[in-house]
Design a protein around this nucleic acid. Structure first.
Lengths: 324, 324
DNA sequence: CGGTTACGGGATAACGTTATCCCATCCGGC
DNA sequence: GCCGGATGGGATAACGTTATCCCGTAACCG
């Protein structure tokens, strides 16, 4: 920077003014400085700038898997871009320890705020960070035990809607195939499903098949549901991956059972019949996540907001067949 | 840090020693310092550290879409983690200008290196960055016109293998449905396909349908290929998205035409028959990308390496049917 | 002609680290 | 009694920015 100032024959101060587009600098002088910058291949060091300024203009996104389809992350990026913030993302890989490493690393880098898809149940490591002024918004799941802004889908309403939809089409015996209930959303959805069944006066036990996403387990669950004395006529799945696995093991029989899948996905319209889904409002989730985060950065002492985003049933055929 | 030193009753220098796990510090003293760190909620500022050290321990990944399935990015993260490097990723959203913004932003942050999936043809903005010492590795496509390390799949061999595979199963009239040829990989694959057709002595024109990923265009291409006087009996697709679109518009007819898709994907085994694909070796691509990047960081003056990674045909049924 | 505004220079202090160059112990061993 | 290797203190200079405080010069306005 000193070299640039010398090259342009101006003061160091003026170079800084030009780089920061200060209005109190004349056009021709700015041009001279820019020429010097180009001539010397000067490129400002953001680290020093951030150190001096205190702020980074950067949001961190710690998500389960960067390289998987994640419409919420996409919406987050879009919203952040509109607010002229850079978002840098890293994967937590569904690993609690890795999540901690990633988040702490972002904290040391003094990111202005972090968007987190929390995993696991113990987020004690966040306490000192939050006390030190970390702005954090949880997405998809809350941070259990901690008062943190969060935005999650209305999982319960989604399951209720799906169940009512199937009931309205005459299905009496519906089963739920879902993810491991140690995962918050999976637990929410499974519980909501059991409540639906119990609400109709039917015994809830044995109707919700939950556990890890393992093809063999899911195949066993589907077979158990369909091969009993009173076989199920409809299935609600717990998320997009489960939907795929269920459809995979149903194969050509998939037309014989009604299916409503949680989470919309590209392949929902690839099948025959197309998959009826409970779709989350990804754009709303991502957008409000950024809104909440910016608001918290602006006013760290504001009250905690927990936003629930409605979901929507999209009928495409697989959920509108009558029981066979 | 000064406060921590005072609290622990040690010198500033010693706090730095403890934070950096310097071996010349006693165990009980380190414990005292750590207690002070905990008591005061001290957390080191990575920006200052990086400023002083010069290095960031961070790799940037500028990819087309963070939130889409990207096995290469996944492999990159894995390999970087093994090397104790943090990788922070951002989307370029298939937008040349956005790519530039993202990359320049990472440069200003002095990331140790950048992994880039380049878009477009004009990467002149990289020249001064490279001159200033940027370590860069291009993935999936080369940076045209610039001498930059890169690692790409053997697109040509992939297409040749697919074509030979179909020919071996008796297919004489094969068409290619691919992406916009302004995209490097799309151009490579389309050209390789035309060469295959010409190599058999058949007229190449009209056998390669390329253009943007637009359902209407793809539908038109498929219909044109199948409805002519000498209808095609086999289709090679240009990438995973195209495969989905082609299968979508073939619908139940998909069993009547042989298909080999470029890129493996989860849904390849969801269909009947399962999709035969040309699979890229994502782990190898990601791994060598990190290797190349680390080597370049270590020795910026080393010669440029351009690595081609072999692809593999995975027969699953859709590509092994005889012409009808 | 005095006063205000616009534009820019100059010097220096931060921001929070680490590194360097010493010095001061203490302790065991020859 | 002296040497040498651990272990730690103290002071200070960086790293590359921006901000502050003040001083110039012009030009412009009434």
């Amino acid at each position: 920077m000193i070299d640039v100032a010398r090259e342009a024959g101006v003061a160091l101060r003026t170079v800084s003014r030009v780089v920061n587009r200060d209005s109190t600098v004349g056009a021709e002088l700015a041009e001279r400085v820019n020429a010097a910058i180009a001539a010397l291949d000067y490129r400002p060091d953001e680290r020093a700038r951030q150190l001096r300024l205190g702020t980074t203009g950067t949001l961190g996104a710690a998500v389960r898997q960067l390289s998987h389809v994640n419409p919420v992350l996409r919406a987050v990026e879009r919203a952040a871009r509109a607010a002229d913030l850079m978002v840098l993302a890293a994967s937590t890989d569904d690993d609690e320890q890795l999540e901690r490493q990633v988040v702490e690393s972002m904290c040391r880098r003094r990111f202005d705020g972090i968007i987190l898809e929390p995993i696991g149940t113990d987020h004690g490591y966040l306490v000192p960070e939050l006390a030190a002024g970390l702005s954090l918004v949880a997405v998809d799941r809350p941070v259990l035990g901690l008062d943190v802004d969060c935005v999650i889908s209305d999982n319960e309403a989604g399951i209720r809607t799906a169940y009512a939809h199937l009931a309205a089409h005459g299905h009496e015996r519906v089963v739920y195939v879902g993810d491991d209930e140690r995962i918050y959303t999976a637990q929410q959805r499974a519980t909501a499903f059991r409540d639906c069944v119990a609400g109709r006066g039917a015994p809830a036990e044995g109707t919700a098949y939950t556990g890890p996403i393992d093809p063999a387990r899911i195949r066993a669950a589907v077979q158990a549901a369909l091969d009993g004395p009173t076989p199920a006529t409809a299935i609600i799945t717990g998320n997009a991956t489960i939907s795929v696995e269920v459809l995979r093991c149903l194969g050509p029989d998939s037309a014989k059972v009604a299916i409503v899948g949680f989470d919309d996905s590209e392949l929902a319209t690839l099948l025959r019949p197309d998959l009826t889904v409970i779709a989350q409002d990804d754009a709303a989730i991502g957008g409000t996540a950024i809104d909440l985060l910016r608001a918290r950065i602006a006013d760290p002492s504001r009250p905690i907001h927990r936003v629930t985003v409605p979901v929507k049933l999209i009928p495409r055929g697989s959920g509108e067949t009558a029981p066979s």
